[in-house]
Design a protein around this nucleic acid. Sequence first.
RNA 1: GGCCGGGUGGCAGAGCGGUUAUGCAACCGACUGCAGAUCGGUGUAGGUGAGUUCGACUCUCACCCCGGCCUCCA
Length: 471
Amino acid sequence: MLQLYNTLTRKKEVFKPLKEDEVTIYACGPTVYNIPHIGNYRTFLMTDNLVRILKYLGYSVNLVMNITDIDDKTIRDSKKAGMSLKEFTEKYTEEFFCGLDMLNIKRASAYPRATENVDGMIELAQILMEKGLAYEKEGSVYYRISAFPDYGKLSKLNFNSIKMGASVDVDEYDKDNPRDFVLLKASTQEEIERGIYYESPWGKIRPGWHTECSVMSMNHFGPSLDIHTGGVDLIFPHHENEIAQSEGATDKPFVRYWIHGEHLIVDSEKMSKSKGNVFTLPKLVDKYGGEVVRFMFMSVHYRKKLDFSDSFARHAQNSYFKLRETLENLKFAIKSADDNEYPSDQEVIDLPDNLEDDFRNALEDDMNIPKAIAVYHELSRVSNQYLEAGRNKDVLEKLLSLYRKFADTLGLFAQEGEEVPEKIMELVKIREQARNERDWETADALRDKIVQAGFVVQDTCEGPNVKRQKC
RNA sequence: GGCCGGGUGGCAGAGCGGUUAUGCAACCGACUGCAGAUCGGUGUAGGUGAGUUCGACUCUCACCCCGGCCUCCA
């Protein structure tokens, strides 16, 4: 039974999808105005893990993630770059997808763009206007939060305590209430000159940020969906506003489970340009490898802050290598497996089932991946223990099959099965000969050569185990 | 001020009212031509003060400390 922590109730709840067998998820995606930093990717990875876990538990999943390709920053920075908005955002959309691949994140079923959904946003504004939940002022359309009694239910912020009239008047000429947010923003002269505008009943506009998510999720899933994900900083105001827009328009519950990922910080500090500690993914992936970064991110529960540092990364890397090494060892051993019986067969044969129970229980407990990884390490140890003495084919296959299942569920060890080149195998063969002749000098020289070619050779009683070098 | 988190061994990070988390690092041992991989073992914990209990890291209360959100932000 999967339990998820729902921000709406601030409790772990048993997860039950609307439709028996298909889970609908909407994930807040990137604003494509620069290369996403590693914190962004931590959140995207959280959603990927959620999808993988749901699939592991037997659900089919329909994930939609938006691409925000029009907002203040994209407009501002495209100009700075001397590019059209479209050119500019396409470039960074590509960057975004590259990053997903580096982390082995599965593609969503759709990535709707804000600019492709402006009609829907205008329609939504009209509906809200008709219902008295929105108003026009100076060519912009605003949401009237005072007309939506549930406003604040997600963020638990209390807006009644704001004294109307006292602290409110800063931009009164602009909005009725400073907390009111913009649905459609009147185009500026500059935007019009650059062709970045849309015609609406209220004149030339461009969409406000919050509006796109309501429209796109309802386009794909109708008024209600199962899960909506994003980073904690989106709880307010973004997701609060989505609720106001969607539920205000449809009078139906919008999202059933709100899942929010905690932030990644660096050396105990928030990432910020002024501190110069903003890391981008390609940089990290170069240094540690994509799967290591993925593994590192997964080694902290999604609702806890992840304090990134070099030593943290190195520890994660070692831990990752250990798991990968065991997989290699299993694969190697299975080549020489037999049908003989070994003393520990009976003892080992049932362990995988128990470990899988532990693994599933961990994941079902609000996606406790750190715990699941601990179970994975147990499987690793059990496997290695068996390899010390046993070679029974059935036992080894059972261990290996569970090992791969864990790997797939966690999105690890995806690029398996790289064949060792013929040339390297030649060297290994010659080295074996030298070793048989106890010619250690030649053997060691050959080993150095193999290492220089990027491979490692480990001598075992079943013969040499050749593998690609770590990282 | 309001709302929410959190404080576990050298580091990272889990579960649990009483029995080893797990990994990394360290140390010892085994295996090995050497190496690698691996196995076995060892040590180091639970912010502070009370309370509940036969027994609390785990429950209750108070306090201290740290962080986040309340403005754009994954």
